[in-house]
């Protein structure tokens, strides 16, 4: 079936079977590989994208459910104010190690700072709980979210 959606600001039509996770449409059909496959069961957050501005696990989002939606992926984050601040903080603090989960971490962090520009440590823990990092870069993720908050406030 043909599904129309807006991807990173561009109207896009994709051809996919109903029930296909948005993740695989983004990765395999649209070839935007910044969005990662980590678990397939919404347990690690590596596949996080924004659907109409909301961080969403694309591995558990069926393509037919995002007809007409605005999908934003990591590739478009530098064009947003919050996204650019988060990426700047991530690079400043060298958050990444293997880096595989970091697109998802950043997509969640942008979601957090968009709705809560001054998050407490507890807010960060609550919001970011579903994003796993096997390298355990959490220490720096926490600090980089606070740094991004400062960048946005400045």
């Amino acid at each position: 079936m043909a599904i129309s959606l807006k991807l990173n600001g561009n109207p896009t039509t994709v051809e996919a079977e109903p029930g296909t996770p948005l993740l695989w449409v983004i990765r395999d059909e649209l070839k935007l590989t910044g969005t990662k496959f980590g678990c397939g069961v919404a347990s690690c957050g590596a596949c996080t994208v924004h659907v109409d501005g909301e961080p969403t696990r694309s591995c558990q989002t069926y393509i037919e459910d995002v007809e007409g939606a605005e999908i934003t992926t990591i590739e478009a984050m530098e064009d947003t104010k919050v996204g650019a601040a988060v990426q700047q903080a991530w690079v400043e603090m060298d958050v990444v190690q293997c880096g595989y989960c970091q697109s998802g971490q950043i997509m969640s962090a942008v979601g957090l700072l968009t709705e809560n520009p001054k998050p407490s440590v507890d807010d960060i823990h609550d919001y970011m709980h579903g994003n796993a990092c096997r390298c355990a870069t959490y220490q720096r993720i926490r600090a980089a979210i606070q740094r991004a908050s400062d960048i946005l406030e400045a």
Partner: peptide, 21 residues
């Protein structure tokens, strides 16, 4: 000294083997 791979791992451009098509 900063990591050379930080930028590509924060903007989605890093190519892991899984990303090869």
């Amino acid at each position: 000294v900063r990591r050379l791979d930080s930028p590509i791992k924060t903007n989605g451009k890093a190519m892991f083997a899984m990303d090869l098509h």
